Simulated assay, not measured.
Amino acid sequence: MYKEYSPCSLLAPFIDRYWEYKGETRSGMKFNIPPHGCSDFVFNVGNATDCTSSDLIMRPYHSYFFGPMNTFTELVTQKNFIHIIGVRFQPCGLSRFIKIPLSQFMNQGLDSHEFPALFSQSFIYQLSENQNPIGCIEHELVRQLYKNSMGTEKQISHVVSLIRRQKGIVSIKELATEVCLCLRQFERKFKFYTGYSPKEYSRIVQFWNAIHLLKPNTSFNNLLFVAIQAGYYDASHLYREVKRFSGHTPKAFLTLPMKEKVEVLHFECIEINRKDKVYERIN
């Protein structure tokens, strides 16, 4: 079962959300996780939670850092039960705790031992035994917030907010002018703090806006209308972008139940060999 939790008001400028997935799976089950324009720390807190992501094997009682992604991440379970908890930072949120160029970690998943320390191994063991792991994580982040004296990157945070408000349909030159930076300096600074170029980040925001528009009552007959609303050239352009970022075609989103939350975190793909068809379920 998948759940999301909001951060406290003190951490909201830096943390987008906490999320948790706990439940039975089956060996070989595959999850496609689309990019959100953020970075995540992920904790394996069960004793049978082996997952594989690209060349990374996520072992029990370990934490992992997933940097900015510009395509979907494929996660394959190796056990029949998983319990993973994630902390999703705002695009510039991690800089309040660690000053690193996020562009160095594009499309990478790393064991936390290979990444500047934020959560110690002893904390992860403590987390596994805690009855309120989300509260435990939040308490640790608040402690580090007061411990660290690093400032907040206000210029880029402001631009990120503008891109979100305009649903990714923006002029990069106008954004640079907004924060009084030359284009080259703006792009370099944006990439340092978010990991993305302004154009890449805008494309991800635009993709999520398109997903929100692809409601179950939409049909293939009016995909062009959705594409134009979301700022794409045509339906083919929409198709390519959705496929690139999610690993699925727009059809997968059209079959969501009417009351289903559109802001999905992951896709669960279960292949069933029956008359050469592949059945997909989206959570």
Rank of each mutant, 00 (worst) to 15 (best):
V205P: 08
P7W: 08
W19M: 00
S202W: 08
S219N: 14
V205A: 09
S63K: 09
N130R: 00
C92G: 03
A230P: 00
H266L: 06
H113C: 11
P116F: 03
L223W: 02
T25P: 13
H62M: 13
Y196L: 06
E24T: 15
R240T: 15
K167E: 12
I169R: 09
N283P: 12
S236R: 03
H212F: 07
F245T: 09
L213P: 00
F41R: 00
A230C: 05
S95N: 11
M258E: 14
E140N: 02
D40M: 05
F65W: 06
I15A: 04
L254F: 09
K275T: 04
R17K: 09
C269H: 14
R274W: 00
P13W: 14
T52C: 12
I100T: 03
C136F: 12
C182K: 14
S95L: 09
F65I: 11
F192R: 13
R281L: 10
V170Y: 00
Q90S: 13
S161H: 12
G109H: 02
S157N: 11
E114R: 10
T77M: 08
S157A: 11
A12H: 12
K191S: 15
A12S: 15
L214D: 04
Y196G: 06
K99L: 08
F186H: 03
F14R: 04
G151M: 10
D16A: 05
I169M: 13
E153I: 10
L141P: 01
E4W: 02
I98S: 02
A230S: 05
V76R: 06
H212D: 12
R143T: 07
N222G: 01
F41G: 01
T218Y: 03
V179L: 02
Y279N: 07
H139P: 01
L265T: 13
T218Q: 02
D111V: 09
E74P: 02
M29K: 10
M258D: 14
E174L: 05
S103V: 04
E187C: 11
G37E: 07
K243Y: 10
R188N: 15
Q108H: 12
I100W: 01
L141F: 10
G168H: 02
P133F: 11
Y61C: 08
F190D: 04
L118N: 03
P250D: 10
L56T: 15
C8H: 06
R184E: 15
N283D: 13
S122T: 10
E260F: 06
P34I: 06
I137A: 03
F14D: 09
S53L: 12
Y5M: 07
L118A: 03
C8R: 09
N273Y: 04
L118C: 03
G28Y: 08
S161G: 12
D234Q: 07
N283K: 07
A230L: 00
P257K: 11
G46Y: 11
G37W: 01
K22Q: 12
F97T: 09
I100Y: 00
I134W: 00
Q78E: 10
P7N: 08
N70G: 04
P133Q: 05
Q144W: 09
E129G: 07
S122K: 08
T25V: 15
R203A: 07
K261F: 06
Y18Q: 01
F41E: 03
C8A: 12
E4C: 10
K199P: 08
